[in-house]
């Protein structure tokens, strides 16, 4: 669909800010982002931690020092750095009540915790953004219905809703992901709708309508690209929320079920030994904290560099 005859407005920004043209490629390129990342030590450490965690989860079979399921009564609740006499690999973070290596279980548990976090964010984002686009673009009774649904869910604590739906559906990894998505979709719907309502009034949408673009084309090619940056920031923040909620559900015994394991479930199982084996209630929580902290730090950074206003300031202060 070509807009023949429509004069493309010239981009005034280059003339308005002399020198902007020259500096632009270096600052806005992919390498510019990476260089900026390297300059921010805290965010770099956070991104590094997440990278190591993801690699460890992917290659758990190679990285884990022990079999996460292999235990033994002789090895019950051994403190960290226990070395078994026959010269094996030390149990760096101790063993649990069944004599299983905690470090290896944390590495395998990362698979479940990260997968649940990521997949539930993708699912809730997909539902929320779609409904938000429909709601904001078409308005009308459908919009009212969706927004009432959002209000209803906003009014009810999300963890309680997750508990109830899991009780109704039964606990499994797939259901945990589904439940997390059901309880958080409205966050995206709200933000998306708000942005769509704002952009709808803009000239570029009017121009698209005037040139005869279909609704589908306007939504997918004109609106969606403008939403990507704020939605991306929101989704990154939501990963931390999802990981924490999954941990809470599994801790309560209503999320991930044995023999599968996640960090929250490990804490739930270690809780009985809070007075005798401190390492069982400490390390899984430390890993959850570090993961959520890193995700939040990276999300904050993504927000700064993807927002054109703050990005300009961020890159200017860097040089």
């Amino acid at each position: 669909m070509s807009a023949a005859g429509v004069v493309k407005p010239a981009r005034g920004s280059v003339e308005a800010f002399p020198g902007a043209e020259r500096r632009r490629p270096a600052r806005y390129s992919r390498w510019g982002y990476l260089r900026a990342l390297a300059a921010d030590k805290v965010v770099l450490a956070a991104a590094g931690f997440l990278l190591v965690l993801i690699l460890a989860a992917l290659f758990a079979g190679v990285v884990a020092p022990h079999d996460p399921e292999q235990g033994g009564l002789a090895l019950r609740n051994k403190p960290p750095l226990t070395v078994v006499k026959d010269g094996g690999i030390p149990y760096f973070l101790g063993t649990d009540a069944l004599g299983r290596d905690q470090l290896s279980r944390l590495i395998y548990g990362a698979r479940v915790s990260l997968a649940v976090g990521l997949l539930s964010v993708v699912l809730s984002g997909a539902i929320g953004v779609t409904l938000g686009l429909i709601s904001g673009y078409y308005r009308g009774p459908l919009d009212d219905l969706i927004m009432r649904l959002v209000d209803l869910q906003m009014a009810f604590p999300s963890l309680l809703m997750a508990l109830l739906v899991l009780y109704l559906l039964g606990a499994s990894i797939a259901n945990v992901i589904l439940v997390l998505a059901i309880t958080r979709w409205m966050v995206y719907a709200r933000v998306t709708r708000g942005l769509v309502l704002m952009y709808r009034e803009n000239v570029f949408i009017e121009a698209a309508l005037a040139t005869g673009c279909s609704d589908r084309r306007i939504i997918l090619l004109h609106l969606l690209p403008n939403l990507l940056s704020p939605i991306l920031v929101l989704a990154t923040l939501e990963i931390a929320t999802m990981i924490l909620t999954e941990a809470s559900l599994s801790f309560l015994g209503l999320g991930i079920q044995p023999p599968q394991s996640s960090w929250g479930l490990m804490l739930g199982q270690g809780r009985a030994y809070v007075t005798s084996a401190w390492w069982l209630v400490t390390f899984p929580g430390v890993v959850i904290l570090l993961t959520a902290l890193s995700v939040n730090l990276v999300a904050g950074w993504v927000r700064v560099v993807t927002d054109p206003v703050t990005r300009w300031r961020y890159f200017a202060s860097e040089s």
């Binding site: 931390a240 924490l244 809470s248 209630v281 959850i288 904290l289 959520a292 902290l293 995700v295 939040n296």
Partner: peptide, 28 residues
């Protein structure tokens, strides 16, 4: 930042570990 990243039930366990189990100042 910590408030947004910490699992509250884990924080609770850590508080129990410190103030109830180690220091014995407060009931578990």
């Amino acid at each position: 930042l910590i408030g947004a990243s910490v699992a509250d039930f884990w924080l609770a366990l850590m508080l129990i570990l410190l103030f109830a189990v180690q220091l014995r100042w407060l009931p578990t």
